[in-house]
C-alpha cells in the first residue's frame, strides 16, 4: 500500500500542492487524472522520491521513501518520467539491463539476464532487442523504457504519462501490456493519464486531482459520472454508455 500523510510541496507562494493524504491500495492499476497543473506528476514523482517533499510523509509498503536508503527503495518502487533522453547510444537490451542495476550493481548474472529477457519478451520487443533506441519509433521506445522498469522487478511501478505522444494503436497496446503486468506479474501500477476514457477502461481505481488536492478517489464506476467529471475537469462532461463500458464525451 502507498500511503501519503499531509504531503505538500510548494513551488512558489501561489503554486503549491497539498496537503494530500490518501492511501493507494496494493495491486491493480491506479490512474491519476485531472486537469493540467493539478499536481498529478508532482505526487507521482514524490512517491518515487525523484522530488523532495516540503512536509508530510510517504510510505510505500511500510517504507518511508525519504528516510529509507535509495538502494533499498529501488527494489520496491520503480518510476519512469515522461522525458527520457540519453547522451549515450543504447540498444534496447542494454537499456533494459540497467533495470537490474539495483541487484547486480553492474555485474549481470544469468538470473539477471533471465529477468531482462522476460521483460523484453513481455513488451514484444524480442525482435528489436539489438536495435539502438534512436532507430525505434516513439511507441517502441516507450515500450523499451517500460521494459526497463519491469526488469527492475519492483512491486510498485510508477509511470508518468506513458501514453504521451503515442497514437491510438500504441496507446491501447501499452495499456493492455500494463494491465497484463498488473494481473499476471502482480505489480501495483500507478499511472498518470490524460484521457479519462483510458483510465476508466483499464484501471481499477481512479484518483482525481484538482488544484493540488485529491478531490475524488474511487472505482471507475464511481468516478464516471457527469457531475463528478464536470467538477474535476472544469468542462461539461457527459457520460454515455459505450459498447465496452461508460464513455466520457466532452467535445
Amino acid at each position: 500500500m502507498i500511503s501519503l500523510t499531509d504531503v505538500s510541496k510548494a513551488y512558489s507562494s501561489s503554486v503549491s500542492i497539498g496537503p494530500v493524504s490518501v492511501d493507494i491500495d496494493a495491486g491493480g492499476i491506479t490512474a491519476l487524472v485531472g486537469p493540467n497543473g493539478a499536481g498529478k506528476s508532482t505526487i507521482l514523482t514524490m512517491i518515487g522520491r525523484l522530488l523532495s517533499l516540503d512536509s508530510g510523509r510517504i510510505e510505500v509498503a511500510g517504507h518511508d521513501v525519504v528516510n529509507t536508503p535509495s538502494k533499498a527503495i529501488a527494489k520496491i518502487i520503480s518510476v519512469l518520467r515522461q522525458e527520457n533522453h540519453f547522451v549515450t547510444r543504447l540498444t534496447v537490451r542494454q537499456l533494459v539491463s540497467f533495470g537490474r542495476f539495483p541487484y547486480s550493481k553492474g555485474r549481470l548474472t544469468l538470473g539477471d539476464e533471465k529477468y531482462i529477457s522476460e521483460a523484453i519478451d513481455f513488451l514484444d520487443l524480442t525482435d528489436l532487442e539489438d536495435r539502438y533506441l534512436d532507430q525505434l519509433s516513439g511507441g517502441q521506445r516507450q515500450r523499451a523504457y517500460v521494459a526497463m522498469v519491469l526488469a527492475q522487478n519492483t512491486d510498485y511501478v510508477l509511470l508518468d504519462e506513458p501514453l504521451n505522444n503515442l497514437d491510438m494503436q500504441h496507446a491501447v497496446a501499452m495499456m493492455k501490456q500494463l494491465r497484463r503486468a498488473a494481473d499476471e506479474l502482480d505489480r501495483t501500477v500507478v499511472i498518470v493519464l490524460h484521457d479519462i476514457n483510458f483510465a476508466a477502461h483499464y484501471s481499477d481505481r481512479i484518483l482525481a486531482m484538482k488544484d493540488g488536492q485529491v478531490v475524488e478517489h474511487g472505482t471507475p464506476a464511481e468516478i464516471m459520472r457527469d457531475d463528478v467529471l464536470t467538477r474535476v475537469f472544469n468542462t461539461d462532461v457527459q457520460v454515455v454508455p459505450g459498447p465496452n463500458g461508460p464513455l466520457a464525451v466532452y467535445y
Binding site: T45, L50, A74, S78, T88, F101
Partner: peptide, 21 residues
C-alpha cells in the same frame, strides 16, 4: 566507479530510480 558512472549517464531521474544518490 565505472558501473555507477554508466547509470549516472542515464540522467538524474533514472539514476535515482535505480538507487543512486
Amino acid at each position: 566507479w565505472a558501473p555507477k558512472l554508466n547509470v549516472i549517464a542515464l540522467g538524474k531521474d533514472n539514476a535515482t530510480n535505480l538507487g543512486l544518490n
